[in-house]
Nucleic acid binder design. Structure first.
Lengths: 343, 343
DNA sequence: GTGAAAGCGCTAACAA
DNA sequence: TTGTTAGCGCTTTCAC
């Protein structure tokens, strides 16, 4: 393998100059740079990231810790992050937890990440106190996406507000019996969004003078199948809700399916709204509160790169806007009598 | 940062012994190993991958080149690969092309991958002659997933057969006017599956004595929206097909939506079948030819790791089985007359 | 079973 | 603008 030394010998210069020329640093004459580049290309020179990393202490690599790449939402964020990282010449090391507690443990173990990456992006996970400690010990820029972590750099939406928007939309349509499908507020894939969305839902109901009923709150595990189960539970009740707010589109899609399996029409018999604007949402005609997914990945990546280069930098909390997207899965409530006649 | 040297000093031994003990190599007394491990832990020793990589020439990192992580199919393969890589202590470097020709070019540029990774996994891309040349020059194990590349290690399904199964299913239900939604057989995200599936479709039709009509073949770009457009094109024809075979579930989902928008009932007016068994397939009640997605990632990762460790190894072509999954989107054709009466 | 010593390929002061 | 000189932290012969 040809190294920087071979190029140095070829152009009869020191390796220092070659290194400078190759990296485009200033202080190298245009003519020298050209000769070096030509020689490097001719000799088939390929840089060694290991050597550069060892010498400089920089790996030009960013770790992205994701709960589950197979979830569109996370994949879209990864895609956004990858774009800006690649533009800037950084590589992306993917750590997929996939609900595996031991994987989570290993990734947060200091030894895995230290000296391996220049920065870390954590997706939709609420690191435990212990994990935060380890991240902090890393001494590297860390941005957390989709969780509210005071004191840390974060990129997210206002989950409380998003839930309020969704709930408000249903209330505005005349619904008062509104079911909620959310997720566990702790566990391996823990993050802060579930609780923020739940309280957003409850607060909005109460502000409208509607008492929230624990019986109308179900766990959908933030998956389609979980949403299906939760939907079944809610919709097969005698006093079933006239509308369901699912804290994610995937759970909403599950709920949609549950409604169909129970012979209920959407939106005539039950309205359904989600959060995300999942790529499939329009195909299910799902009303939802859209959030800029891809953008969150881009912003977070931009943020850690700024931290890496810019001198003075402190954790910034970025909150991106959401938007209600009304489609066919929600409609004004039909008065009982009209409903009976309609059937 | 504490290094191997500090540990050596602490236990009063040479760095060579520390290195051996830490890596679990043989030729170290049990007692020494224990002392080293204890010391390393106590001093908070963290290994440096750059240094190890520079000295050994091994990065313990595998590159995964994927057309688009946001597509469930690719994400699932990545997830499968990540699992086995992590189990074996390897890291995964993700390169997401996202339809960007320049990204593709850069990734295949020899310089990016050489000295950076120990092996490469290429997903559903048909590398060009030039790219194959570069991959080959890498001198590292490469496995290609989802493409038929004689002479290279590959993991895939039998696309021709999968298409034949799907088409055969429709023929068996009495359909003869069967539309096809596929994808371009070349371009930035080129791979061999599209052409194999197209010929599988055509051959099966002809073997059944049905002439294939170019007018019934549409391009769905392997996306939901592309499937929607293609579905519209096929189903709004006066002589519309009674069934559609889409070369991927995502396109089939688009076609399903097109049918609904055109007021056609599935499966009464038109049957739809896909390939993949996408995670959403059951929620759309979509009949499909299932392929082991996750498993392909696992097998491919296992394969390159074997190549990395095992001495004698030559490119193996693994073909995983597919299976017809019949759901509600396909049904026996209803004779013209019965159909009219039914309306 | 353990140690000495020579690098791996590059970067970064500091000189010139 | 260019060169000299130390390393960065580890692995790997080759001795003993």
């Amino acid at each position: 393998m040809t190294s920087i030394k071979d190029v140095a010998r070829d152009v009869e210069m020191s390796t220092a100059t070659i290194s400078r020329a190759l990296r485009g640093l200033q202080g190298v004459s245009a003519e020298t740079r050209e000769r070096v580049l030509e020689s490097a290309h001719r000799l088939g020179y390929v840089p060694s990231p290991s050597a550069a990393g060892l010498a400089s202490g920089q790996t030009r690599t960013v770790a992205v810790i994701v709960p589950r790449v197979t979830q569109w939402f996370f994949a879209a964020i990864v895609q956004g992050a990858e774009e800006v990282l690649r533009e800037r010449g950084y590589d992306l090391l993917l750590y997929n937890l996939a609900g595996d507690a031991s994987a989570r443990h290993r990734v947060f173990e200091t030894s895995l990440l230290t000296k391996r990456v220049d920065a870390v992006l954590v997706l939709s996970l609420k690191p435990s106190v212990d994990e935060l400690q380890r991240l902090s010990v890393l001494g590297r820029p860390v941005t957390i996406i989709g969780a509210d972590m005071p004191g840390w750099a974060t990129v997210r939406i206002d989950d409380h507000e998003a839930a309020a928007t969704a709930t408000g939309h249903l209330l505005g349509l005349g619904h008062t019996r509104i079911g909620y499908i959310g997720g566990a507020t702790e566990g391996v894939l823990d993050f802060t969004a579930p609780s923020a969305r739940l309280t957003g839902y409850r607060c909005t109901l109460e502000r409208a003078g509607v008492q929230h009923e624990p019986d109308l709150e179900a766990d959908g595990e933030f998956t389609v199948s979980g949403g299906l189960r939760a939907g079944h539970a809610l919709l097969s009740r005698a006093d079933r809700p006239t509308a369901i707010f699912a804290a994610s589109d995937e759970m909403a899609i599950g709920a949609l399916r549950a409604a169909r399996e129970l012979g209920l029409r959407v939106p005539e018999d039950v309205s359904v709204i989600g959060i995300d604007d999942h790529e499939m949402a329009s195909y299910f005609d799902l009303t939802t509160v859209a959030q800029p997914v891809h953008e969150q990945g881009r912003v977070a990546a931009t943020q850690v790169l700024a931290a890496l280069t810019g001198g003075d930098w402190r954790p910034e909390q970025v909150i991106l806007p959401t938007e209600l997207v009304v489609r066919g899965s929600t409609a004004a409530i039909v008065p009982r009598r009209a409903r009976r006649r309609g059937r």
